[in-house]
């Protein structure tokens, strides 16, 4: 199977104009195979883009991409529960689920399992495959050895696997909105202050060291995950899909770099040089993959 390059759902609160522009470029210019759409972090943000999904999906499909709809990662309110139920009835597109609430509705339907679901081992994977799961984006904190076992296992079960290879890594979810909190507000009167931070809000230690990134109820890494050099290894172990998390940097350029590396059309060194040349405003990390602290970079700089 030809390796697939994918675009994760936009995690941050970009305005509709920015999102439309982003997806137009992805549809027309980016060498990616699958695009995940949908607001997965905060249900309050959904009305801003709801009316655009049809046109965006259509354009992406015309651009030759597979479109998958991703569901909310944290479901609590009645309104959010209804959203999940509605998504699970969707007929035209595949679904990626990010919370176990969806499993109740999907008893006789196939679906993809997102990276915010806890699929850490082969038994859980096999159970969900028997319940309709066809594809797994594995949790970002899993080390290489576990990913190798899961990728091989998925293959035997007839499922496919995806690993995030670029972008900030989701580390935690909370019921509290930390964006609102930083601005002296709460979730209910947040005034969408998260819109100001298009790659997330920086959180630094008291000695001024860059540490974490806040995105509403989500906490992410400050560092950008970069597994460019490990994709050959992943392909060999049977990983089929490679995920890019959207940021404000030129994602078409990022996609091109990862595409070339996946297709082995340029050398690993050259790909790394190109990625470094994009001037990403944070260090790269690959610690989780190497079984080390996630923020670390193992290998040559």
């Amino acid at each position: 199977m030809k390796p697939n390059l994918t675009i994760a759902p936009i995690l941050f609160h970009w305005n509709a104009e920015r999102k439309l522009e982003f997806y137009a470029r992805i549809a027309d210019e980016a060498p990616v195979d699958v695009v995940y759409l949908g607001e997965i972090i905060c249900s309050k943000r959904t009305p801003f883009f709801e009316n655009h999904y049809d046109e965006v999906a259509e354009r992406l499909v015309r651009g030759g991409k597979t479109v998958v709809f991703s569901t909310l990662a944290e479901v609590m309110l009645k309104r959010e529960r209804n959203m999940i139920a509605g998504f699970c009835d969707l007929e035209d597109f595949e679904l990626e689920i990010n919370d176990s609430s969806a499993l109740w509705h999907l008893d006789d339907k196939s679906y993809r399992v997102g990276s915010l679901m806890n699929v850490y081992n082969e038994d859980t994977m096999a159970y969900l495959v028997a319940k309709g799961a066809t594809h797994f984006t594995l949790p970002a904190e899993l080390p290489r050895d576990s990913i190798a076992i899961l990728a091989a296992h998925a293959k035997e079960l007839g499922a496919t696997t995806e690993v995030q290879v670029f972008g900030r890594v989701s580390l935690a979810l909370s019921a509290r909105c930390y964006h609102a909190r930083a601005h002296g507000r709460i979730k209910d009167n947040c005034q969408f202050v998260c819109e100001e931070d298009m790659d997330g809000m920086p959180l630094n230690t008291l000695d001024g060291e860059e540490f974490l990134t806040v995105n509403g109820i989500q906490t992410l890494s400050h560092s950008y995950l970069n597994l460019l050099d490990d994709m050959d290894d992943m392909k060999e172990m049977g990983v089929t899909h490679f995920r890019l998390v959207p940021h404000t940097q030129d994602m078409v350029a990022v996609a091109n770099i990862f595409r070339e590396a996946l297709d082995d059309t340029v050398s690993a060194e050259e790909s790394s040089e190109k990625l470094t040349a994009l001037d990403i405003p944070a260090p790269f990390s690959n610690g989780f993959w190497n079984g080390r602290p996630g923020h670390q970079w193992v290998g040559e700089v």
């Binding site: 944290e74 915010l116 806890n118 850490y120 949790p139 970002a140 904190e141 890594v169 580390l171 935690a172 979810l173 909370s174 019921a175 509290r176 974490l212 906490t219 890494s221 610690g287 989780f288 079984g291 080390r292 602290p293 996630g294 923020h295």
Partner: peptide
């Protein structure tokens, strides 16, 4: 704790030891 338990890898990001695993 307000971080959703079972969905937090902050410790692993800093220490290499995982709360979940």
């Amino acid at each position: 704790g307000l971080m959703v338990e079972g969905r937090c890898s902050l410790t692993n990001y800093i220490t290499g030891l995982s709360t979940n695993m």
